[in-house]
Design a protein around this nucleic acid. Structure first.
Lengths: 243, 243
DNA sequence: CGGTTAATTGAGACCACTCAACGGCTGTGG
DNA sequence: CCACAGCCGTTGAGTGGTCTCAATTAACCG
């Protein structure tokens, strides 16, 4: 039995009882597919839906007045669209599928019931949320202070780390079907510059990036270049808790 | 009777009953002073304290390996250090007083009791928290996409807007005792460049900045330059809710 | 009044941008 | 099966924003 990615990710933040895990799986059993570059969520009726990403990559993005699109957050398997059912006045932030993705809609009232029953899930969700904020702050610092090459290196390290949480692999390889324009929107640099930086990283033997697959061939060097310290992801938080 | 800044700010996000407001004021009655450039919180005993900023400016900051300091969030009157009492493994983020500030420590259990009693406060806190995230995302986009002059203009607009929420004034004037090095850490640019940009903004008649006071003399022009749309601050959220 | 901190100015270097052109791959219709 | 179109990746050249380093002036404080 393979636990679904929601349970896997939440368990990283707080131990979850078997019963709670089963409830979570039941709640996220029905998959829906969304195509690359489509908007999320595809509204079901008029209600703003809560959903979980099960497979693929999505992003939160803002569109600037000049038409530039800036990605302000990445989502991967196990990430929630929203965990509090509060609506603010409409914002200028959207969510988009960056690859073909599959998601599971969550019925708000059933989710709230689940939270009432399982304190461990509440705690896990809260910690996952704190980790999200930590990522946002790290992005701010990176955007503000690091040159493009370091930002790229940092992003690649972060993506591999986040994916490994759900699908561990011995080698540092992930599927990465982003086009260079997407990378540019992620890093806040021009597509042309993305190209030059990727070439530099390849030439220096830090990564292999060929037809939609990324392999980090020299993790030590890449993470050193990026000054990547995975602590901010709070990976395996309930284990490192003792620290 | 002047309500304290906590009540004022929270009321912006959700209507708060008189009784809840009184409870909040009682909880934040005891002020503590902290000097500029000191670390927050000054631990009381060993426990991580929850506190509210009552006066002045503080910031969340990260220190990069090369020693650069990057500010990743601003705090002003009415902002909480933390509203969930969850501890993650220690992070590399600190909070620092950017001016002399006064804060109020909050006893965790009394705060939790208050939240149990007053759903309206829970809602206000949650919305304030959503607004915080919205600000973070906007910062990411600004850092990534806007040149220094626009970032500066945007920051000044944001600061005036946020302060006005607590102390409204007819003219766009706030006390701003930041040195240019602080501004550099806020915007992710060099202190020298801060200087040149401020001069440009002054020359163009957009701002007056003299001995610790900032006046935005041409708000329309400055906000246009910054592409500043205050919507992301969710100012007066429960009023604009109808939108 | 001396000493420290902050603001200002100048000069040269570098990073990243824009614009433009070209090459490669893929799918599709004739 | 080939030709074409369209998207994506690559490369070059010139420009501009921002940096660093260094020196000078101004403001503040005891």
């Amino acid at each position: 039995v393979v636990p679904n990615s929601v349970v896997t990710v939440l368990s990283n933040f707080n131990p979850i009882s078997l019963e709670a895990a089963q409830d979570l799986e039941a709640l996220t059993a029905k998959k829906t597919s969304v195509l690359r570059h489509d908007e999320l969520p595809p509204f079901e009726g008029n209600e703003r839906q809560v959903w979980v990403l099960l497979e693929g990559w999505a992003c939160r993005y803002m569109t600037l007045p000049n038409g530039d699109r800036q990605i302000v957050g990445l989502m991967t398997a196990g990430d929630f669209s929203d965990t509090r059912s509060i609506r603010l006045a409409s914002s200028n932030i959207g969510i988009m599928a960056m690859t073909d993705v599959s998601i599971a809609f969550i019925q708000r009232d059933r989710f709230n019931e689940l939270l009432d029953r399982h304190r461990d899930v509440v705690m896990a969700v809260a910690k996952a949320h704190l980790a999200d904020e930590s990522i946002m702050r790290t992005w701010i610092a990176n955007m503000a202070r690091k040159p493009a090459k370091q930002r790229m290196a940092h992003l690649l390290c972060e993506m591999v780390s986040r994916v490994s949480r759900v699908t561990p692999s011995l080698r540092m390889v992930i599927k990465l079907p982003f086009i260079q324009t997407d990378m540019a929107d992620l890093l806040g640099i021009s597509p042309v510059h993305v190209n030059r930086i990727l070439q530099a990283l390849r030439t220096e033997g830090l990564i292999h990036l060929r037809s939609k697959w990324l392999e980090i061939s020299n993790y030590d060097a890449l993470s050193a270049l990026a000054e990547f310290d995975p602590g901010y992801l709070y990976y395996d938080e309930h284990i490192s808790r003792a620290a």
